[in-house]
């Protein structure tokens, strides 16, 4: 096969952008930055080590998907530190992170970058920044609700729901795959449940962090998540 195609694939996004000549302002004024952002994220990610980043880029190099991201993980860390809240929370980076922990293992300064990404995902949902048609964030939300209500995750219904919400065409495209799984007894559309659903739900609600919820009352994702 032509191995060049993989290479081309890696730069597909960049090449697509090349066709459009776009004039963008490349200056940032201090008043546009959110100075409290870094403390918020550092706290949420349980580590102030974020401040110790030397911008060496090992995380980006170790990341298997960084070449698809609009900002590399290294840039994200710097942007968080300097308060580029909007750019970070609307970036594709956080939703492309597959949580493989390669960056966390390789970081020479011991920064848990994967946990920073989780914190950003949460922040993006809470603040209603997440890309509305992004399957990754929809999946996370649906998964959350399913487990909140049933205690377990049922892969079949989860995927069907996600495709319906994002790209119904994908559902059609993956139908054959689904069928193959179904005849091999590897997927079902039945919803899995634990015995005492109510007790579990109560348990989960008992650790709700009220302060976060109050602060971001307008997040539809949260409303959806907690309205049951």
């Amino acid at each position: 096969m032509d191995k060049k195609s993989v290479f081309a694939e890696s730069f597909a996004l960049d090449n697509a952008a090349k066709d459009i000549v776009e004039i963008r302002r490349r200056i940032k004024y201090e008043s546009e930055l959110d100075k409290s952002f870094r403390d918020k994220i550092a706290k949420s990610a349980h580590g102030e080590k974020l401040y110790g980043c030397i911008q060496c880029g090992t995380c980006s190099a170790a990341c298997p998907v960084s070449h698809y991201m609009d900002y590399t993980p290294r840039k994200i860390i710097q942007m968080v530190r300097e308060g580029f809240k909007e750019e970070v929370l609307t970036s594709s980076t956080v939703w492309l992170c597959a949580s493989c922990y390669a960056c966390t293992v390789e970081c020479p300064k011991g920064i848990k970058i994967t946990d920073v990404m989780y914190a950003l995902k949460r922040e993006s949902i809470l603040g209603n920044y997440y890309p509305k048609k992004s399957p990754a964030s929809i999946l996370a939300n649906n998964f959350f609700n399913q487990v909140l209500n049933n205690g377990r995750n049922s892969e079949g219904p989860l995927l069907v729901k996600m495709y319906l919400k994002t790209n119904p065409f994908m559902l059609f495209k993956n139908m054959a795959l689904g069928f193959k799984l179904w005849i091999r007894g590897r997927i079902s559309l039945k919803t899995e449940r634990i015995k005492d659903k109510k007790a579990l739900k109560k348990l989960l609600q008992s650790v709700e962090d009220k302060s976060i919820y109050k602060a971001e009352v307008n997040s539809p994702a949260l409303k959806e998540a907690s309205a049951v």
């Binding site: 880029g57 190099a61 840039k75």
Partner: peptide, 29 residues
């Protein structure tokens, strides 16, 4: 940029039989 790994697997023809260094060129991103 700090190199994350040196490997001998090739993704494209120019990498065949070479050692490939993976790194973020942090000045370009």
């Amino acid at each position: 940029g700090r190199v994350s790994e040196v490997t001998d697997w090739a993704l494209v023809p120019e990498e065949e039989n070479k050692l490939t260094i993976r790194v973020e060129d942090t000045l370009i991103g």
